[in-house]
Design a protein around this nucleic acid. Structure first.
Lengths: 98, 98
DNA sequence: CTAACATTTCGATACTTGTCAAAACATCAC
DNA sequence: GTGATGTTTTGACAAGTATCGAAATGTTAG
């Protein structure tokens, strides 16, 4: 299997769990509605809206990062998240090819 | 979570496993290169190209069908598969929205 | 009807994963 | 420094999943 395909599979797998999908969509939407540079958002505000324990959110976030769908940064006490637009284009490209 | 989202998650989950992804791509490609109506292809010819046991292929195919990515028909002794184009458009739409 | 072929179901097993509580780590405010 | 707050790691457990061999089912050919 081609390398690019393996990467796609990792993305699909990451999005193929309800809680991870919701986490991703929250990051996506929070980033869209943000006026700050880079469209990032704070993890703790997302945690507030998901009724999942913090360790679980952290675990899922790490998987989104491993799948290259999301990237994170630390700003002092907080962690900020943003979606990786380039990765999204790769996925969209797969479906456009069909 | 909205109903449409749950459907998306099922599709992502189905595509998020290497063997299932390969099965899907085989069906996709076989269908594309076919001149028969409906772009269908025979399951046994796909099985030949994947080094996975028949029971496992059958299992994965069922999951692709459950995810609404693929539909199957029986033609006598054989099973034919085709991708569900409408479902593909639904997924593509998700990524266009970003 | 029987033999051959295509596919699915069943049963078992090894492996992966989602989740949480508790502890640890990181950073800031004081 | 201490305490408070945000996040991650660890350890554990339940649940889910991928895979296979064997058996069962469906279907056609002869």
């Amino acid at each position: 299997m081609a390398d690019a395909d393996a990467k796609l599979v990792r993305m699909f797998k990451a999005l193929g769990h309800p809680n991870r999908f919701r986490l991703f969509v929250e990051i996506l939407r929070a980033g869209e509605s943000s006026f700050e540079e880079g469209h990032h958002c704070f993890l703790h505000s997302i945690m507030d809206r998901l009724d999942i324990g913090a360790p679980t959110v952290s675990h899922h976030l790490k998987e989104l990062v491993n799948a290259d769908l999301v990237s994170t940064d630390r700003e002092g006490k907080f962690v900020t998240c943003r979606v990786n637009q380039e990765a999204l284009r790769a996925v969209a490209g797969f479906f456009d090819r069909t």
